[in-house]
Design a protein around this nucleic acid. Structure first.
Lengths: 322, 322
DNA sequence: CAGATCCATATCCATGGCATATCAATCTAG
DNA sequence: CTAGATTGATATGCCATGGATATGGATCTG
């Protein structure tokens, strides 16, 4: 009754060979079932497709029309199949990514560019989002992966969600931003205790676990940083430094996108800023699964400032004396 | 192994209902075979299409991709089927038509426009062709139908071809073209014998059976027309008349496309110009067959000048006294 | 906690697709 | 012009596949 791709494949074989016997050979079948398959296709279409004279076989006008249509249909089916399999294998698809400002403007773009070379068909969409909303966005399928600087499995301020995973994505070192003319710009490397007397610009500690982490680092170094200005948006830090509000400790990758009105210096002892990713353990699209797998098996980071996340550690990183 | 339209229809039903049981009901089948059909589609694609939790069924990313692809495929298959059936029934397709100049610029366009209203999907291609090539063009499939003014079954100058048919398509009356200022323009109707003393422009009698026919008409009326100018292309007749070369007897339908530098007058006794069509008896596309059938069952001609070809007469028409 | 609902699995049966054998109609070679 | 070869259609039988019924396991609901 209804057309069938198998029938169309049979039809095309006959249309190309213009012979039932040869077509049957090409299809690895015998000739009678092929004849009757075509006959039933014809009866389904209520149209003769071949004019057969028991010696010569040729296409009727309707047959020529079907030849073109069938080719298009089968080609499209082929493409569709490839496309679906590609999505199923995670080679194509879409990944919706949420990230906080420092990560988004930090190393994330580099990692994504790297993955794009690995899986060019995968589209990635990045949303900048407030840290407080990240967990909810992932749970609600608004995003597939969220990048932030907090290991939620250890953060008591958010409820535990058994269907969420959280692993270390990569780690960056921290640098200090200094205004032009600051005495420490003369040194190639700055010691953390040198910053004890400076005023600091930092993210709001109440909303930013990352800010609290930096505070703890300073305390371990022996001083409590004096805060000249608290900001919500990390993007505004460099301009505040340039305006003379003091210094700030930020992920080194921030240096990539700021002007030359400020100076970045490495800090000893080396402090690491961990980047974690949050994702659903179930109902993750293949492309997402594949991306996570790729990221977790990545060899040691490219660039001087990224370390690999080879260990799927959920342990909170501490100040790390080099 | 390979995808199958039936599988896709099943898949779409499940994708729309998001329930195997309801989809099975809609498909008039029981649920188990539907489940296993989907399972085998999934194994063919090596991809899970639904995430089923024995309570809720929802599409995976690959499933969403396949939903879109399957819709497109099935819609295209539907269109293809319609298209092929339409060609098979002669409702669409292409008809290649050959015609001589007087017919092409005469009544043919009107008939074709009429048929276009009856079968809008049928494209017609018209070639102007020399009468001598018409039979060969039809035999070689260069054209499907040739219109001319000779019944080849009675014309001894062409070989008989048993695989060709030739029937009367329609008949037109003849009119006379007069230059402006000619004395006969004063009369509403011209008698043929009135033209005995005029000089005539006519087609070359050696190549045009139609020209010989007109000559015979005049002879039967009692005079042999004096020829001022012989032309090969009927298109040039009106301008020659306007330039004072005399008068000419032409199919009345020619009046449609000429300027007002000449005058057309009906002639008594009425002379009819038969138009025949030549076509292959076998290997004619459905659209051609359908057109021939339509033309042969047409009721009496539209417009004052066309008579129907109800009788499939192969008798050569003679001067017809009204 | 019991019933209901829903999908998966198991088993059985019939239809349909395929192969073998044969026929009828060409085409070709001698 | 005839005999063999070739080709598509027809006849027949077998088996795999698709579908139905029965049942099990899991989850939701009252």
């Amino acid at each position: 009754m209804d057309m069938d791709l198998k029938q169309l494949r049979y039809f095309l074989a006959v249309a190309e060979e213009l012979s039932f016997t040869r077509a049957a050979q090409r299809l690895n079948m015998s000739q009678p079932p092929l004849s009757q398959a075509i006959a039933q296709l014809e009866s389904g279409l209520k149209t003769r497709l071949f004019s057969r004279t028991s010696r010569r076989v040729e296409l009727t006008a309707a047959g020529q029309e079907l030849e073109a249509q069938a080719r298009a249909l089968i080609a499209q089916a082929e493409r569709a199949q490839q496309q679906v399999m590609s999505v199923g294998a995670g080679r194509s698809g879409k990944i919706e990514i949420g990230a906080t400002g420092t990560i988004l403007r930090g190393g994330l773009a580099t990692w994504l560019a790297d993955y794009r070379r690995h899986a060019p068909q995968v589209r990635t969409v990045i949303y900048e989002q407030a840290p407080a909303l990240q967990v909810k966005d992932v749970l609600d399928h608004r995003t597939d992966i969220s990048f932030n600087r907090t290991d939620i499995s250890l953060d008591r301020s958010v409820a535990r969600h058994p269907e969420l995973g959280c692993t270390l994505a990569w780690r960056e070192t921290l640098s200090v931003i200094l205004p032009l003319g600051h005495p420490l710009t003369a040194r190639p490397v700055v010691t953390l205790t040198d910053l004890a007397d400076d005023e600091h610009v930092m993210l709001h500690p109440e909303s930013s676990e990352f800010a609290r982490y930096i505070q703890r680092c300073c305390v371990e170094a022996g001083f409590l940083p004096r805060v000249s200005q608290q900001v919500v948006d990390s993007q505004s830090i460099p301009s505040l430094i340039a305006a003379g509000f003091g210094v700030a400790l930020v992920p080194t990758s921030t240096a990539r996108f700021t002007s030359d009105e400020v100076v970045f210096r490495p800090v000893t002892p080396t402090m690491v800023a961990d980047v974690y990713m949050i994702y659903r353990l179930r109902e993750q699209a293949p492309a997402v699964h594949e991306f996570l797998r790729w990221l977790s098996t990545r060899p040691d980071g490219r660039g001087a400032d990224q370390a690999p996340s080879k260990a799927i550690a959920s342990r909170r990183s501490k100040l790390h004396s080099s």
